[in-house]
Every structure is written in structure tokens, then in C-alpha cells.
């Protein structure tokens, strides 16, 4: 997805995420080219997406830590049709979305970029790239890992 000078509001309509007190560190991190996920200070487990407590032990003592941005594809789909999302995705069709298993543990849905659709396979190693899809919104995407 190409960079845009438009704001998310102008371009993404209701697809735009709501930035809240809970998830602001994640969205701010993306602008600094950092993929942040939550880690529990009590049990040490990681989690994604943003929650107010650890889904493993229940502790509210969570910190945002930098993910290596490396992982592998658990499953994927090739999107051929825009359904219930912003029409902006029409110009990307067809495109792949992967469910990426981050090295830290959690899985994350993300678009695949900088590759052929045939490169998208289960267990393929991938790494994060940061795409400025609007002047005020950066989205993490993944591409085949260049080095292991």
C-alpha cells in the first residue's frame, strides 16, 4: 500500500483505528519504526492485541516491549474481494494477509508486501516493515525474511 499525504480520516474512513489510552503506545511505536507488543511483568508472557490485563495470569502490570519483528506464517489468505472494509483496499486486490507467529509468541494479522503472492506460504519466515498508509497512520506489514 503506497504512502499518502492524505490523513487517515480522509482516506480510510471508518477503517481507521481508534487511538485510545490503551493502544496509543503501539501506534506511536509504529511511527518510530518499532513494533511494540505487551509483556506481563508478573509472568513474563507476551500478548497481542492490546488488553488492559494479562490474558495469561490476569496481572494489570503490563509493559510495552519491542518485538524482534521476526516470525513465521501460521496461516494466510489471498483477498480477492473487499467486503465490509474501506473501498481503499480495492486498488490492492488481490493481496495476501498473513497470520504471523511472532518469535515472542503472539500471532498478528498483517498484510504481506514487497513479495509475490506465491512467496506467501505456511511456515515461511517473515519480517516486519512499516508502511505510512496515511500522513498520520503507520501500519505494520510483513515481507519474506531476508536473513535468518
Amino acid at each position: 500500500m503506497s504512502a499518502s499525504s492524505e490523513t487517515a480520516e480522509q482516506y480510510w474512513s471508518w477503517t481507521k483505528p481508534e487511538i485510545t489510552s490503551l493502544n496509543k503506545p503501539f501506534w506511536d511505536g509504529l511511527k518510530r519504526r518499532e513494533l511494540l507488543i505487551q509483556r506481563c511483568k508478573k509472568c513474563g508472557e507476551h500478548q497481542w492485541y492490546a488488553r488492559a490485563n494479562c490474558i495469561h495470569c490476569g496481572s494489570r502490570e503490563l509493559e510495552w516491549v519491542k518485538s524482534s519483528g521476526k516470525g513465521k506464517i501460521y496461516s494466510y489468505t489471498i483477498i480477492n474481494m473487499v467486503v465490509g472494509n474501506s473501498p481503499i483496499f480495492n486498488k490492492e486486490l488481490p493481496y495476501a494477509v498473513a497470520l504471523v507467529e511472532l518469535d515472542e509468541g503472539p500471532r498478528m494479522y498483517a498484510m504481506m508486501t514487497d513479495c509475490y503472492l506465491s512467496d506467501v506460504k505456511i511456515d515461511a519466515p517473515v519480517e516486519v516493515v512499516f508502511k505510512d498508509v496515511a500522513s498520520d497512520l503507520t501500519i505494520p506489514m510483513f515481507r519474506p525474511a531476508k536473513s535468518q
Binding site: 477503517t15 481508534e18 492490546a50 483477498i79 498478528m108
Partner: peptide
């Protein structure tokens, strides 16, 4: 809304 649609998911 926050973690799927902006990431290209289609419901």
C-alpha cells in the same frame, strides 16, 4: 475495528 480492518482483513 482497531486491529483487523486497518490490517487488511475482510471480516
Amino acid at each position: 475495528n482497531d486491529y483487523m480492518l486497518p490490517f487488511g482483513m475482510m471480516g
